[in-house]
């Protein structure tokens, strides 16, 4: 119970985010399913922020964590850059109907 009262603000925040996340894509046409999936995948690359925050704290002589952190930052960046670029390429195939 203590945990809940201390984190009430976060719990509200998450609940609203869930509903907004669902509502925002509720009317997506089937043709856009794949680009939207790819775009959402790119957005989940925001985990890179966490990797950077953690890397900034790792001591200079902690080689294990420096290696893991380097890989984590690399993977996070790959997720973001690859995700947005590939979404862009998919969307290029959609020609606006005139």
């Amino acid at each position: 119970m203590d945990f809940i009262t201390h984190h009430l603000q976060e719990i509200y925040f998450v609940l609203f985010c869930v509903f907004i996340g669902i509502e925002v894509i509720a009317n997506v046409p089937a043709i856009l399913h794949t680009p939207l999936m790819s775009g959402a995948n790119a957005i989940s690359g925001v985990i890179l922020v966490g990797a950077i925050l953690l890397m900034l704290r790792v001591p200079q002589d902690d080689y294990l964590n420096l290696t893991l952190g380097g890989i984590a930052v690399f993977l996070g960046t790959l997720n973001i850059s690859g995700g947005f670029f590939v979404t862009g390429r998919m969307l290029k195939m959609f020609k606006p109907k005139k």
């Binding site: 925040f13 996340g21 669902i22 925002v24 997506v28 399913h33 959402a40 989940s44 925001v46 985990i47």
Partner: peptide, 18 residues
Amino acid sequence: NKAMIAGGIFVGAAGILL
């Protein structure tokens, strides 16, 4: 980090609906 929470939850919720 609010940006991470929000981004993650948006993707989580939107992903399940999708």
